[in-house]
């Protein structure tokens, strides 16, 4: 059976080339050719805000959507996109996110069912780092600078630094940096190369400062899902933990490392020093309070309880589990299977 996969993410984005397309191939493989995908990428058929209705109304069999674009349709699931400030490790963050989404947030699953979609995973991207057009190496240098951010949750961190957050669309953020409208951007490191920012960026504070969350890179129309044989669905679910590991490493960690390797000689790179570390620590301490406010704005039931659960799940993945799976893909995969995907019923 051939399924169409629609996505508004630019065809050439690493997330597609190194993440989504290999994932679709792997699913074809594990289903022994039972299902194949025809990708229609780059907004040719579906835009990013149009992803959800297109999957729901069966314009495509499967596709990509952003939860934060639909707070009214999915109050709980869209709140997952506010958790940017909790994560620093890509693998720990995606583990925590999927554990919350699939096993600790029944409201999220109810949101998905109401929208007639079956999510295969929820994703987190790559750590955000500060990239500046001038010389910046620790927190005091940042006071008063304009920092372009893509998402709302990042603004709290920039304000905590005493800088001015400027919310930008992806289409504006690049020219904002290049034309001087912003002094810095809080962006994935690999964007330096993929958007040709090497002509513009002079210094980088290479310390993880949150990870953008909330996209569902593969959701399947519920009617399509129900027509797939039970065994195929089981095989797909069983393959997800391994797929997620490879997805994060090749689409996000890999491109970052490649840029990290080549930029050291061209750019001024620092970790922000103790001042930035202290600022980040106190920001993370204050973040739950801000998240409770946000959860209230999303209309979540029991905001305090939900945020406490989310913070604790992130803590478990970052503090208890991360030491066990650093440099050990199999342990990560086993943990994700045991803690999350064993509980997902195909």
């Amino acid at each position: 059976k051939t399924l169409t996969y629609g996505s508004g993410v630019p065809e050439r984005a690493a997330a597609n080339r190194l993440g989504v397309l290999p994932m679709l191939d792997r699913l074809t493989q594990v289903s022994d050719g039972e299902i194949r995908f025809t990708p229609i990428l780059g907004g040719q058929l579906v835009s990013i805000p149009g992803g959800l209705p297109a999957i729901r109304d069966h314009v495509v069999d499967a596709g990509f959507f952003l939860t934060q674009f639909h707070p009214a349709d999915m109050p709980a699931a869209s709140f997952m996109a506010e958790l940017t400030g909790l994560g620093t490790s890509p693998l720990a963050t995606i583990g925590a996110l999927n554990e919350i989404f699939f096993t600790r947030c029944p409201a999220c699953m109810a949101d998905m069912a109401r929208q007639n979609v079956v999510p295969m995973m929820i994703q987190s991207a790559t750590p955000l780092v500060l990239q500046c057009t001038g010389q910046v190496s620790d927190a005091p240098d940042l006071a008063g600078l304009r920092v372009a951010v893509i998402g709302q949750p990042e603004m709290r961190w920039i304000e905590a630094l005493g800088a001015i957050p400027v919310r930008s669309s992806v289409s504006d953020i690049l020219s904002a940096l290049q034309l001087g409208q912003a002094d810095c951007g809080l962006l994935p490191l690999s964007w330096i190369r993929s958007y040709g920012l090497q002509d513009t960026i002079r210094s980088v504070i290479d310390r993880p400062q949150g990870i953008i969350t909330g996209a569902v890179p593969l959701a399947i129309n519920a009617d399509t899902w129900s027509t797939l044989p039970q065994t195929t669905r089981q095989k797909m679910i069983a393959a997800m933990p391994g797929i997620i590991h490879d997805y994060v490493t090749s689409a996000y960690v890999g491109p970052d490392d490649a840029v990290r390797g080549e930029m050291a000689e061209r750019l001024h790179v620092s970790d922000g020093g103790p001042t930035l570390a202290a600022a980040w620590a106190s920001f993370q301490k204050a973040e739950p309070t801000a998240l409770i406010e946000a959860a209230r704005a999303h209309g979540l039931e029991n905001p305090e309880g939900f945020v406490a659960m989310a913070v604790e799940t992130f803590r478990i993945w970052h503090e208890d589990l991360l030491p066990r799976f650093t440099d050990d893909p199999d342990t990560f995969t086993a943990l994700l299977k045991a803690r999350v995907y064993d509980a997902v019923h195909p």
Binding site: R12, L174, L179, L197, T200
Partner: peptide
Amino acid sequence: LIVYGILAEQSVVR
């Protein structure tokens, strides 16, 4: 040119 720059991941200034 801005739209192309984003889609093709090329520098808008260039």
